[in-house]
Amino acid sequence: MAELATTLHLYRVLAVAKVRADWQYRSQFLLYMTTQFFITFLDFLQIAVIFGAVDSLAGWSLLEVVFLYATSGMAFYLGDAFISQVERVGGYIKAGTFDALLIRPAGTLVQICANDFAFRRLGKLLQASIVMVIVLARLDVEWTPGRLVVFALMIPSGTVIFSSIWVIGASITFWTVDSGELANTFTYGGNFATQYPLDILGTWLRRFLTLVVPTAFVNYFPALYVLGKPDPFGAPGWVRFISPLVALTMAVAARAAWTGAVRHYRSTGS
């Protein structure tokens, strides 16, 4: 616990310093943040156009799909703002600057994530949050205590799941160096896939996203419970409640992967 507190403190100090530095270039900072806000509308436009052609998608209404979009977006963009910087580790390894991180009295992961922290990325999170507020106001859900709890745990669990995928993907880079885009398949691809109900995917892809890279737990399973929808594939009922456990497992796996990767690392030397 004390270790966690120190890490969080360190993250804050480093990130604040980075934000101060970025803020020196005010106009680009604001322009970039604004465009990030708008770029997020692309996926939203796709949903809007699709629902111009049909009234429902695999039994999900527009508002229900937008609920998936908002939960996926918030979880993904939180991970994007605070952890996704880890995908740059390939660059550190190639340039040889990873060594510098190793000799400092702080964890390597927190150093990378905090050093490259970009406040402007929060523009995307803002867009997803606004959509969330709008959809919650219009969605017709009977809020029970159980549903409130499951809903409250969706975003933190989803954030941890996406962040763990980022860290595991980056850990693989220690062996392959050039495979950055591979991790994108599961992060950006996971974000894209979770904007739509899992029902529409083929069986093999559905199983993959449930059992191997478990992004189905970011929002699909808990959303079934919150929105009171039937599961067309008849997964056991408890599956709707285990997202926090899945997140915890992923975090443990990510920690092990990162530790293993750093231990494997051999500097290129001089």
Partner: peptide
């Protein structure tokens, strides 16, 4: 390696 990774991503998308 980058091209292979990219091909995989494109296929999944």
């Amino acid at each position: 390696a980058a091209t292979l990774a990219g091909l995989f991503t494109n296929t999944v998308f």
